[in-house]
Write a protein that binds this DNA or RNA. Structure first.
Lengths: 329, 329
DNA sequence: CTGAAAGCGCTTACAG
DNA sequence: CTGAAAGCGCTTACAG
């Protein structure tokens, strides 16, 4: 910039004005400056700008997994809102690892992102308190923040699971299994709670062997599904706790006669093309992301809001698998 | 940092040493500095650091669409490699819009990312020449760079499509349709070229009405598929140019008797669970991303490499839909 | 082992 | 309309 100013025979500030598109420069001066810029191949350094201005026009997103189709629309919605506000998005994935989440979130803060959106992997976010106090707007999405007060945007996992299981019960099922994610994941336990609530509401007992929490790896889920179906007290229907579980359960059930009913939490592409179509409790991940990002930029715009929890409703989509009747006794 | 130094009664440089983990500080001094840091809630500002050091330890990724399942593994692979090199990833999506791609890439350069990975939306990348000359390592992935010499990593679209169509021909088909993406998208025309090559190799004519390029929107694809199947010279098999096209064609074909054969470019989740399973020409998007990112960091490490083009092979996966025989005449 | 000075490349506030 | 000075928060030489 110094070189450009020298070459154009103007002051530093004038170059800054031209580059920044500020008014108050004669067309002639501007032309000289632009010529110098082109001749020297000058490119403004935004890092210096950021240092001086305070704001970086960037937000950080600590996401779970870039390749998980469930999070695709959520991540995209965040990116779209950021873009609409002229902010760049700096991302990193926690891969479900709390230490990695922490390391990443703090690295983003050191880069002085204006705000932070976190899909929590861990359940203790006190490490972010100093950052939030220092002015980093922070919103948690898909799962709640742990041990701090903060904005949270998530789906109604409890209600969604309860509705899905109630749907199976209404179809005549009395022995229903539940296969979910690890017990330390908030959505997993909320959905399990919904399952138990629906069963209790109908006055149905739940055998210990009907509930299986753990990894969503296909092997683990396959084993869990088989054990639900073959025990002394086999289930006639399965409720799957998330998209990854559902897909594996579909594979297991495809081989069974008589057919076993299935309702899965989370919608997924082609669920309607399978035979039978897969009945699901659908979340709206794009809205989850959009609401979280809107909240973030609302805060960045200066709104002094108390931390709030936003819970989005789910929607039951019957497609066939959840309407399979239990075998006649 | 100034405040910390004052409070600890030491020089600025000593604080810098403690924060940066440099050696040459007595344990006692270090303790005093750390106390001051905690008391004042000091957090190092990496922007200032970047300004002074030259390198930002960040790379930019201009991606196509965060929610497209095909790109999920590619994006993730890039993120993983960046993370392994201690770099953060700054992203933005072009949404297939060349202007947006350009704006985004230049914004990332202004932030002084060390390197740039671009999934091209446009076909003229001369705007990046000054940046590359100024030292921004740049790698293009999935599609080639336009009008500049640069590193490119992509799949063998031509060969993959040729193999897929040859597979249909080997199964007895002589009238095969092609439905692909917009003609200005490089992979679309390469795959069309592969289709024509396979037909020519077998001495088969191609009716103009059998080829349809355009948007991958379901409506457009559905109309194209129906027209291929109902014209005066209806096809007995369809080759779909990418994952989005394939999924829509599957829906159309599900309603047809006699069954129509289908081979799609790109694998997709659950392709094996559909009835019939969908035969595809599979790319390896994760490897695409990993190879591109490796190349980038190789350059960043100082390797003076000439621009290279890396082409990854595809793999035909027969699952049923591509093995449907043509109806007996 | 420790620190004072200079500077990274911009913008802010002020003066002409 | 234009510019010289100061400073954003660090690190890099260099000297003690």
């Amino acid at each position: 910039m110094k070189d450009v100013a020298a070459r154009a025979g103007v002051g530093l500030k004038t170059v800054s004005r031209v580059v920044g598109g500020e008014p108050g420069v004669t067309p002639d001066t501007e032309r000289r400056v632009r010529e110098a810029i082109d001749a020297l191949g000058f490119r403004r350094n935004d890092s210096a700008r950021v240092l001086r201005k305070g704001r970086t026009a960037s937000v950080g997103l600590v996401l779970e997994d870039l390749a998980d189709p469930f999070y695709g629309p959520l991540n995209r919605a965040v990116e779209e809102v950021a873009r609409a506000h002229g902010a760049l998005l700096i991302i990193g994935s926690s891969a479900e690892n709390p230490d990695r989440e922490r390391e990443l979130a703090l690295a983003l803060c050191a880069r002085r992102v204006d705000g932070l959106i976190v899909i929590p992997a861990g359940d203790d976010h006190r490490y972010l308190e100093p950052e939030i106090r220092a002015g980093v707007a922070t919103v948690f999405v898909d799962r709640p923040a742990g041990r701090i007060e903060a904005d949270v945007v998530l789906s109604d996992s409890f209600g969604g699971a309860r509705d899905g299981v109630a749907h199976l019960i209404a179809g005549g099922h009395r022995r229903i299994g539940f296969i979910g994610d690890h017990a330390h994941i908030h959505t997993a336990t909320e959905r399990l709670r919904g399952y138990r609530a629906a069963m209790a509401d109908a006055g149905l007992p739940v055998a210990g062997s009907w509930v299986s929490l753990g990894s969503t790896e296909p092997e683990r889920v396959r084993a869990a599904a088989r054990s639900l179906l073959t025990g002394p007290d086999p289930v006639t229907a399965v409720f799957a706790g998330n998209n990854r579980v559902t897909v594996t359960v579909v594979r297991v059930l495809a081989e069974r006669t008589p057919p076993v009913a299935l309702v899965g939490f989370d919608d997924f592409e082609l669920a309607d093309l399978l035979r039978p179509g897969v009945t699901v409790v659908a979340q709206d991940p794009a809205t989850l992301g959009r609401v979280a990002a809107d909240r973030l930029f609302h805060r960045l715009a200066g709104a002094a809001l108390p931390p709030a929890r936003t819970e989005l409703p789910t929607r039951l989509i019957p497609r066939g698998s959840g309407e399979i009747a239990p075998p006649a006794v």
